[in-house]
Nucleic acid binder design. Structure first.
Ligand SMILES: [Mn+2]
Ligand SMILES: [Mn+2]
Ligand SMILES: [Mn+2]
Ligand SMILES: [Mn+2]
Lengths: 161, 161
DNA sequence: GCTTTTTTGTAGCCTCGACTACATTTTAGG
DNA sequence: CCTAAAATGTAGTCGAGGCTACAAAAAAGC
């Protein structure tokens, strides 16, 4: 039913190979655009849970960037409705931010588990997953869960079969 | 060289979580910085092989960006010593560019194969691999090859047969 | 309470990768 | 050959995400 597309085989309704390829790159670019936001919400949620608060300075240190950079990115989080902040009281996640954080964390773990399951050394899996995670689609994620024998991939109910 | 702190040698799991995490993010950022270059050389090599030439316009169309964007990026490829170009004669790869292209293509294929092997639908594997590939380390790649049953995954040219 | 340190925020600068608009050059058509 | 179309290149703008340097406010120390 779907395309079998292993090479230049534009079965997707007569789409030229160029368009298919362009769409692929476009998808990767789009994923990258949200990568920073995803890492921030995951980390903020982390800090809120473990420390009870998420201060810009802590966020910056954990991310390995300057505090100025972190504050600017937090500004973007706020613009996008993912976070709020109180002066000298740290950063908080909106419901949307919390939801995103939960999905991002689950995805991160699943990616690491998958890498380890296919033989990647755990330490290396952790390293690579930080970048890989942002490019793993829900479909692939579901496949990962199936491969790992998890019976409950996500709470999203996105099934592929 | 461990005399930075009073702490003994961190055993890659015992060191400050902050530093580990920061290093992880730093590695992901670094990988992303070369993602565009990698996609360009892979595509240019593709076009040179299949079409005999790699024109900026073709490159732009395949990547789904404007020709101005492509030309600017090609400029960066040239600055970095990966490509050359002749006016109205297209873009060519330097030896370094060719080498990079070969490695990038092999990695791309291996990533797709791995995804398919763990149950990701082929079409989806193609899509996701475009972004994932840039974050897969040599170590992980070797693990992928092993998992797929490939014989001796050319780890730094170490021939063992 | 006053001073010092830490934290937070701003301002200004950079590169990269995207875009549009315009200019030029080559190629193709008549 | 001369003109129209296509390809190529330039210029200028933008936002994102880095940085440093400086300014101000809060927390900590004394
Ligand atoms: Mn990440
Ligand atoms: Mn993560
Ligand atoms: Mn790619
Ligand atoms: Mn690729």
């Amino acid at each position: 039913m779907v395309t079998k597309n292993a090479m230049p085989t534009p079965l997707c309704g007569e789409l030229p190979a160029e368009a298919v390829q362009a769409a692929r790159f476009e998808k990767a670019r789009s994923a990258q655009a949200s990568a920073v936001l995803e890492d921030y919400v995951e980390l903020i949620d982390d800090l809120l849970t473990s420390q009870g608060e998420a201060r810009p300075t802590d966020i910056a240190r954990r991310l390995g960037v300057s505090h100025a950079t972190a504050i600017k990115s937090i500004g973007r989080l706020k613009r996008e409705g993912l976070a709020t902040s109180k002066l000298y009281r740290g950063v908080f996640l909106t419901p949307r931010g919390l939801d995103l954080a939960a999905r991002v964390r689950a995805r991160h773990r699943l990616v690491v588990d998958l890498l380890v399951a296919v033989g990647v050394p755990p330490h290396c899996a952790e390293l690579d997953a930080e970048g890989i995670e942002h490019h793993v689609s829900d479909t692939a994620l579901a496949a990962f869960a199936r491969f790992l024998g998890h019976e409950r991939p996500t709470d999203d109910g996105a099934e592929v079969e």
